[in-house]
Design a protein around this nucleic acid. Sequence first.
DNA 1: GTCTATACTTCGATAGAC
DNA 2: GTCTATCGAAGTATAGAC
Lengths: 196, 196
Amino acid sequence: MATSRRIGSKEAESRLRLLDAAIELMRREGHTAVTVRRISEEAGLKRQLVHYYFHSMEDLFVEIVRRVSERYLERQARALASPNPARAIWELASNPQAARLEIELMAVGNRLESVRKLMADYSERARQLQVDAIRSALEGGKVVCPFERPEAVVVFLRGIAKLIVMETNTGISSGHAEMIAEVEDFLRGFDAAERR
Amino acid sequence: MATSRRIGSKEAESRLRLLDAAIELMRREGHTAVTVRRISEEAGLKRQLVHYYFHSMEDLFVEIVRRVSERYLERQARALASPNPARAIWELASNPQAARLEIELMAVGNRLESVRKLMADYSERARQLQVDAIRSALEGGKVVCPFERPEAVVVFLRGIAKLIVMETNTGISSGHAEMIAEVEDFLRGFDAAERR
DNA sequence: GTCTATACTTCGATAGAC
DNA sequence: GTCTATCGAAGTATAGAC
């Protein structure tokens, strides 16, 4: 496994190409398709380079989580700054591509403790920022919301959005339209807080 | 892949032992641990028996979905007959073991169309029964519920329950307590319908 | 930083005897 | 229904030259 082999720098272009190839592969074909040979093929590089930049497959998956999560935090930061943060949270969690990738990463996390732990850390960081954004909106006073606690708002929106998007990816649709109508009502309560 | 090889009967005891071994393995170590050799080892049988009972790994995974889903439908039928079907749906969806297994099966479904399709069929069947149970409760008239449509109630309960249980499995806990408190309020509205 | 060459392991699958 | 024996493909990983 992890030995004292040399390892390439984190900024190297080839390293990023390999990492992005691995992510793209995982998104398209699932994490079982993420093998040393397939990654290098996808990136157009020799397969030994994968071993040069990553100590092991576990290390590679950890770096995938890091890259995906850092990108997500940036996207979320931009989205939460919008006039209706509730709608931003709903839309961020409704991304089908992201949901597919997350399922795969959770499956990897089920067998690699380091991956599971890192995913938990990033999710907690993201959650805090989501809650902060909703708390500000609630404290603004101009919002209509059936829940008092901002934490409940966030878990509500993300839970519904994720179930719907995962089920849609699987090919399930029953009940979605009816719940989406309820969520739209809910989100309109947050439109009242828009600065105009 | 699938050839004209002989295949054993569906009722054979060895076949069920292999299937259960595969399910247990998937639950404990994820679907990448589900290999012909590991399954036979777990079941205490020779590995060639796996090939005798299943045409291919794809066939094996399809049979896993069938077995897991049939069991789930039975458990759900018993649960939905209880006085508070809303609470039954909430508790069924809050099972951590089931959530782990489902993540793995979704990952398998991401690369095997036959598995994805079968999962969708079973989920739609289960969903119909969930909606029917809630509809009956709502029509009983003695229920307090913020949603008019039974479909919304089901997607609400399952979405929240699944997000919380999946996050808990991953090691995330922020916001759960606050949302669970809201759900408990919601469920109490359905207690009014209890036959006493 | 990138390459060739290779060691070693594990995988799914099949043929054919009993 | 269960076994022995075996194949070929694919997996991770390492050593060492350039």
